[in-house]
């Protein structure tokens, strides 16, 4: 299972997390088992109701 650039991988056993700066074909292993890619974030840009700004317009 390949690993991907700029993705985080988590060890389900010990909780270690690594960030891949250069992807490759190999499988990342920790505590004797393959690490899991952390779920894709929905991101913050499509959410959040807009509160009033704390600083009033100048």
């Amino acid at each position: 299972m390949a690993n991907q650039t700029a993705k985080r991988y988590v060890c389900a056993s010990c909780g270690s997390e690594i960030l891949v700066t250069r992807g490759g074909e190999g499988t990342l292993v920790c505590c004797g088992q393959p690490m899991q890619v952390r779920g894709a974030s929905p991101g913050v840009q499509a959410q959040l109701p807009r509160p009033e700004p704390e600083v009033q317009r100048g």
């Binding site: 700029a6 894709a40 974030s41 929905p42 991101g43 913050v44 840009q45 600083v55």
Partner: peptide, 23 residues
């Protein structure tokens, strides 16, 4: 006009949010 550095001094820190790749 608000002065950003002065405002920053009074502000609580905000750390990077999670984003989607395409954001």
């Amino acid at each position: 006009v608000p002065h950003l550095p002065a405002l920053a001094e009074q502000s609580a820190p905000v750390f990077p949010a999670e984003v989607a790749d395409e954001d």
